[in-house]
Design a protein around this nucleic acid. Structure first.
Lengths: 234, 234
DNA sequence: CGCATGTTTGATAAACCTCAAGACCGGTGG
DNA sequence: CCACCGGTCTTGAGGTTTATCAAACATGCG
């Protein structure tokens, strides 16, 4: 668990010094409920959390996952109420900061403010990518794209260059993230295995043929790669 | 065209005084190309623009539309490159501001900064709603939801309470926004008409039975309604 | 009027969903 | 160590939704 090292390395480090508390959430527990005012910010220490909306008949759309090292609800401190639910996908540990402290810290440091903007830009990029995935890609393409995206984000958090993508949630979660049924997720994964692009196990997915996967998913990692923040108008 | 009045009424008014230029884009013209550095911000004066990504085989996913009165690329001033294309959906007029001026203005005024955060929060909400729509809703639900959303945004811009939703783009644009084929858009609209929920014409869609439409789309306008910005930590 | 663009309709195919049963796997208690 | 149990994954059959292709039909415009 070297996430702290990672966090500490960024321009966001000053955040870590602020008052905070560390809270454990068991899998399934709600972290931020629908319509709840958002006045805290969160950093995932371990586990996965997820942001989702539920339709009346029980359909669930997972909007995105928060992985270890991820910050979230940074932008929601302007008096908004949550329009979705955040809950623990696995057993999860979060550091929770007070929104006011955070705002003051941002106002003290333009460098911190810029870093925070950067995180928000990244998050919007992830949302847009999710829209392209579920709007215009086939099941296999969606899965390939999503796996590569997870892999990219996990590599950032871990610092490794690993081809194994841990997946600590059941395939039903993949289904609700990608707008597919569990059954079809399973079948599509089977196809990807048959094409020797990936191997699967209970614990995750192993990328076997990254090039083909990238081609199938039209996944351009450059679009997501963090770039140095130029700190304009500092 | 009372958009200016609207803009002038908000906390974002100081922006209007900054140096800018006004540029016309004919329908179809690219405004911000893929991979282009983003160092300007834009306000739509008239017409629609759109943000989209194209897949290699020509598939297009429209991520969202920018309507008159909308601001965009506010967040992209931290040295990011565009991961998508912005182009004019109809003939469009934009006010274009220099990013540096804008950043300085924000740093001078916490009130302006808060207003800008608010706009960004709204934009993220729209993206999340788009994900729910195309991920877990049927064609008819998607269309109903999208119409109501358009109507809400147009009412904000116009100040009216109108049940007519102008649609200055062909149905193919709806299709690419909602992840459906043109043919299926047409058929689904026919169904909605048969159920007496809407009427359609070349120029747009008229909401006939708003209650049923809201129920079908599970559309809760409260989730989007702009609320006063409390300006925490001012 | 005639053409280009957009919309609708019909027929057929593909992608994906639902239901249901069976197989697998990791843990638990005997 | 084994048997069992619950949750998860896979497979099969059949149905629904949506896509594709092609043609007919509208609409606006020069």
């Amino acid at each position: 668990m070297k996430h702290y090292v990672e966090i500490g390395d960024t321009d966001l480090a000053p955040l870590l010094d602020l008052n905070h508390r560390t809270v454990d959430f068991p899998a399934g527990k709600t972290i931020v409920a629908l319509n709840e005012p958002v006045d805290k910010i969160y950093i995932v220490t371990s586990g996965w959390s997820l942001r989702a909306r539920y339709l009346d008949d029980g359909r669930r759309q997972i909007i995105n996952f928060q992985l270890p090292g991820d910050y979230f609800d940074l932008m929601s401190l302007v008096g908004a109420r949550s329009d979705h639910t955040i809950s623990a996908a696995t057993d999860t540990t979060l550091r929770i900061y007070n929104g006011q402290d955070y705002l003051r810290a941002i106002q003290r440091s333009h460098r911190l403010a810029a870093a925070f903007w950067w995180v928000t830009v990244q998050e919007e990029t992830i949302l847009r990518q999710q829209i392209v995935r579920i709007g215009r890609m086939s099941a296999q393409e969606r899965i390939a794209n999503f796996i590569l995206e997870l892999n990219r984000r996990q590599n950032i958090a871990d610092g490794d260059r690993d081809d194994f993508v841990p997946l600590p949630v059941p395939q039903a979660f993949l289904a609700d993230a990608l707008g597919l049924s569990v059954v079809h997720i399973s079948r599509s994964l089977t196809s990807l295995k048959a094409r020797d692009l990936v191997k699967t196990s209970r614990r995750g997915i192993e990328i076997i043929d990254r090039d083909s996967l990238v081609e199938l998913a039209e996944y351009d990692p450059a679009l997501f790669e963090p770039k140095p923040v130029p700190l304009a108008a500092q």
